[in-house]
């Protein structure tokens, strides 16, 4: 009976310690470091499994005869982005002094509790990734890097309420701000009431910072969903498939001669 009491005590203690850890460590910046460290430590023993997974994926892709086509599409998309970038050189000289490239990365973690807010990719500062860089899927913006360690990076998604990105409506040149609601939906905010937009109009990023270049495709304008503070709110139909983010491309910048 005494031993049963001791077992119960230890069982309850483990639950209590777990609960306390959950309360005090959730959302702490150190938690990202802990997760990256665990990922780095386990990277070597997990290597065979990861290689097997990549092998299977490649085999499936080969059978579907899409690998070559995908490479061609990626090349064209990168070229398209560079051309759009060239169009905006008048907007920012700093952008014109660099040349961009797309760095492929695999999504290695997408936590269920932060499904629409962030994800982790298998490329970090060692691969040239910096905080603030744009992350794309098939040429469409999905978010930006907000945390970088040597081998991993964390990406905040457009669907996150914490990420707000200035955007331009291509057809009308109206400026607005893209923001997520944390539940998979994206809205275009701050469009003046008198400027009526129609569904299907193209949305691209406006100049935000030296990392997030203008002209990156975001998606299309959807239906008007409401009015707030004298501005109309529109839903956004994103070009990227946020439910199927298995691999992404990071828009890395390599400094060239000025």
């Amino acid at each position: 009976m005494k031993r049963e009491g001791s077992t119960a005590l230890h069982g309850l203690a483990s639950v209590a310690v777990g609960f306390l850890l959950m309360v005090f460590l959730s959302g702490d910046p150190a938690s990202y470091l802990a997760m990256d460290t665990a990922g780095t430590l386990l990277a070597w023993p997990e290597l065979p499994a990861r290689a097997a997974r990549i092998g299977v994926e490649k085999a499936v892709s080969w059978f579907a005869d899409t690998t070559r086509l995908q490479r061609e599409i990626n090349k064209l998309q990168a070229e398209n982005i560079r051309l759009k970038q060239a169009l905006h050189t008048a907007v920012s000289e700093s952008v014109s002094s660099s040349e961009e490239g797309l760095l492929g990365a695999r999504v290695v973690l997408r936590r269920p509790d932060d499904w629409w807010k962030e994800l982790k990719i298998d490329k970090g500062s060692a691969d040239g990734i910096e905080k603030g860089m744009a992350v794309l899927q098939d040429g469409f913006l999905v978010g930006r890097v907000f945390q970088v360690s040597r081998n991993f990076s964390w990406v905040e998604l457009l669907t996150s309420p914490g990420l707000m990105i200035p955007a331009v409506v291509e057809e009308t040149r109206d400026l607005g701000v893209i923001a997520g609601d944390g539940e998979g939906r994206i809205s275009l905010l701050y469009v003046p009431l008198e400027n009526l937009l129609t569904p299907g109009m193209k949305l691209t990023s406006a100049l935000v910072s030296e990392h997030l270049a203008p002209g990156l495709r975001i998606g299309e304008v959807g239906e008007a969903t409401g009015i707030s503070g004298g501005y109309r709110i529109y839903s956004v139909v994103p070009g990227a498939e946020f439910s199927r983010l298995y691999s992404v491309q990071v828009f890395v910048k390599k400094e060239g001669p000025r």
């Binding site: 119960a8 209590a16 777990g18 609960f19 959950m22 665990a38 386990l42």
Partner: peptide
């Protein structure tokens, strides 16, 4: 939790609690 769930202590507490309950 460190490797996968990101909610530190969730799996730890549940695992420990379940084993304690199982033993009893």
């Amino acid at each position: 939790d460190f490797r996968w769930s990101g909610l530190f202590g969730l799996s730890a507490g549940i695992y420990g609690g379940i084993i304690g309950l199982m033993c009893i």
